[in-house]
Lab assay of single mutants.
Amino acid sequence: HFTSQQLQELEATFQRNRYPDMSTREEIAVWTNLTEARVRVWFKNRRAKWR
């Protein structure tokens, strides 16, 4: 589960860029205190939901 702060950060990034690269995902991981893998999976799932 994600905190509302984490989701806000993830959503804001998603609005700007639906396909963040590795370095962007790592930055998000640092800001949100999540692993890069969790961030990558979140984006994958979010893109699926967005379609």
Score class of each variant (00 low, 15 high):
Y19R: 05
V30G: 10
E26L: 14
R25N: 02
L10H: 01
S23H: 13
A29C: 06
R46W: 05
Q15Y: 07
Q8H: 11
E9D: 14
Q15W: 08
H1M: 10
P20I: 01
T32L: 15
E26D: 06
N33V: 05
A48E: 12
F14Q: 01
R38D: 14
R40G: 05
T24N: 06
W42T: 01
L10K: 00
W31T: 15
E27Y: 11
A37E: 14
F14T: 02
A48W: 08
T3Q: 04
F43T: 01
M22V: 09
S23C: 08
F2E: 03
P20A: 05
L10Q: 00
R38S: 13
Y19S: 05
V41W: 13
F43V: 01
L7I: 12
E9Y: 15
S4C: 14
V41C: 09
V39N: 00
A48M: 07
V41N: 13
A48F: 08
L7W: 10
T32I: 13
F43D: 00
T3F: 04
R25T: 04
M22S: 08
R46N: 02
F2C: 06
L34W: 04
V39I: 09
K49H: 12
E9R: 14
Q6F: 08
E26W: 09
L10N: 00
V41Q: 14
N33G: 15
V41P: 00
K44S: 09
N45E: 14
A37I: 12
I28M: 03
R51E: 15
Q8N: 10
E27M: 12
L34P: 00
R51D: 09
T35D: 08
R16P: 03
F43E: 00
Q6Y: 02
H1E: 12
R40W: 06
V30W: 09
E9F: 15
Q15M: 11
E36M: 04
T24S: 07
R51G: 09
E11I: 05
Q8C: 12
P20D: 02
E26H: 13
R46L: 01
Q5K: 11
R38L: 15
Q6S: 05
R51Y: 14
Q8I: 12
E36K: 03
Y19F: 12
W31D: 09
T3K: 04
A48C: 09
K49Y: 09
E27A: 12
T35V: 03
R38H: 11
T32E: 02
V39W: 03
R51M: 13
N45D: 11
I28Y: 02
R18M: 14
R51V: 12
T32H: 07
Q8L: 12
I28D: 00
R16N: 11
F14M: 05
V30N: 12
W50Y: 08
W42S: 00
V41H: 10
F14H: 04
Q6W: 05
L7R: 07
W50F: 09
R38Y: 11
A29G: 06
V41T: 12
E36G: 03
V30C: 09
E27H: 10
T35P: 07
E11F: 03
F2I: 11
L34Q: 08
R25E: 03
V39M: 00
S23P: 10
W42H: 00
W50H: 07
R25I: 13
F2H: 03
A12V: 08
T35M: 03
A48T: 09
I28Q: 01
R46V: 03
M22K: 15
F2Y: 12
Q15K: 11
K44L: 08
Y19N: 07
R46H: 03
R40D: 07
V30M: 13
I28G: 01
Q15S: 10
R38P: 02
W50A: 08
R40L: 05
R47V: 06
F14D: 02
P20S: 01
E26Q: 14
Y19P: 00
V41K: 15
N45L: 13
R18G: 04
F43K: 02
W50L: 10
D21M: 05
K49V: 14
S23K: 15
F2K: 02
T32N: 08
V41F: 11
T3H: 05
D21L: 04
R18Q: 13
S4H: 14
R16L: 10
E36D: 01
P20E: 03
Q15A: 11
H1C: 08
E9V: 15
F43C: 03
E11V: 04
R38I: 15
E27Q: 14
W31S: 15
Q15F: 06
Y19C: 11
W31H: 14
N17L: 07
E26R: 13
Q6I: 07
N33K: 10
F2W: 08
E36Y: 03
Y19I: 04
I28R: 01
E26T: 12
T24P: 01
L7F: 06
V30K: 15
Y19T: 05
L7A: 06
Q5Y: 13
S23R: 14
A37Q: 14
P20K: 03
L34G: 04
R16K: 13
W31F: 14
T24E: 13
N33L: 06
R25L: 10
K44H: 10
Q6N: 04
A37W: 13
Q15V: 09
E9A: 14
K49E: 15
R51H: 12
L10S: 01
R16M: 09
K44D: 06
E26K: 13
S4E: 14
P20C: 05
S23W: 07
T13E: 15
Q5P: 05
S23Q: 14
I28W: 02
T24H: 08
W42F: 04
M22G: 06
W50E: 15
W42Y: 02
L34S: 12
L7K: 08
A48V: 10
A29T: 01
M22D: 05
F2M: 10
K49F: 10
R46D: 04
T35K: 03
R18Y: 06
L34N: 06
T13R: 15
W50D: 14
T3C: 07
L34I: 06
R16H: 10
D21N: 10
R25G: 02
Q5W: 14
A48S: 08
Q15D: 07
R18K: 15
H1W: 12
N45A: 14
N45K: 14
T13F: 15
L7S: 05
R18I: 06
T32R: 01
I28P: 00
I28A: 01
Q8P: 01
R47C: 03
L34R: 02
H1Q: 13
E36H: 03
A12I: 11
Y19V: 04
E9L: 15
A29H: 02
A48N: 08
D21W: 04
F43A: 00
K49M: 10
T24I: 08
E27K: 13
K44Q: 10
T24R: 08
N17P: 01
Q6K: 04
R16T: 11
M22C: 07
T13Q: 15
V41L: 13
Q5T: 11
S4N: 10
K49C: 07
W42P: 00
Y19D: 04
L7P: 01
S4D: 12
R47D: 03
V41E: 15
W50Q: 09
V39D: 02
N33D: 09
R16A: 09
Q6G: 02
T24L: 12
R18F: 06
N45G: 07
R47Q: 07
E11Y: 04
R40Q: 06
T35I: 04
L7Y: 07
K49W: 11
V30Y: 12
Q6A: 07
E27S: 10
